[in-house]
Amino acid sequence: MSVLPTPQQNHLLAALPAEVQDRIFPHLELVSLPLGKVLYESGDTLCHAYFPTDAIISLLYVMESGASAEILMVGNDGLISVASFMGGESTPSRGIVQCAGYAYRLLGKRLKDEFDRHGELLHLMLRYTQALITQTAQTAVCNRHHSIDQQLCRLLLLLMDRLPDNQLTMTQELIANMLGVRREGVTEAAGKLQKLGVIEYSRGHIKVLDRPKLEELSCECYAIVKKEAERLLPNIYFPASGYSSE
Results as ranks from 00 to 15, higher is better:
Q150T: 14
G87C: 04
L152H: 06
E89F: 15
G75T: 04
R162V: 00
N143C: 10
L106M: 03
I133A: 12
H146V: 11
G88E: 09
A100H: 08
H146N: 12
L157R: 09
L35S: 11
P92I: 01
P52I: 02
E114A: 05
C142L: 11
S147D: 04
T129A: 12
L107M: 09
S58I: 05
I148P: 02
V38P: 07
Q130D: 13
V38R: 13
E89C: 11
D54P: 03
G66T: 05
Q135L: 06
T45F: 15
I80C: 03
L126P: 06
V62I: 09
G101A: 02
L124F: 09
G108T: 01
K109G: 10
R154H: 14
A55T: 03
L39W: 08
L59K: 10
G88M: 10
T45E: 10
V141Q: 11
C99Q: 15
D149Y: 12
T53P: 04
G119A: 08
A100L: 10
M170L: 13
V82K: 07
L156M: 00
T53N: 04
R105S: 09
I57H: 02
L155W: 13
S90G: 00
D54R: 04
G87V: 08
T45M: 11
D116I: 00
S65G: 07
G36Q: 07
D77I: 02
L35M: 12
G95Q: 07
V97Y: 00
L168G: 04
F85S: 08
S81P: 01
G108N: 01
R144T: 04
A67P: 05
A137N: 11
H146M: 11
E89I: 12
S68Y: 01
Q172D: 14
L163E: 04
S68C: 02
Q167R: 15
A140Y: 12
G78Y: 01
A137L: 12
T169W: 13
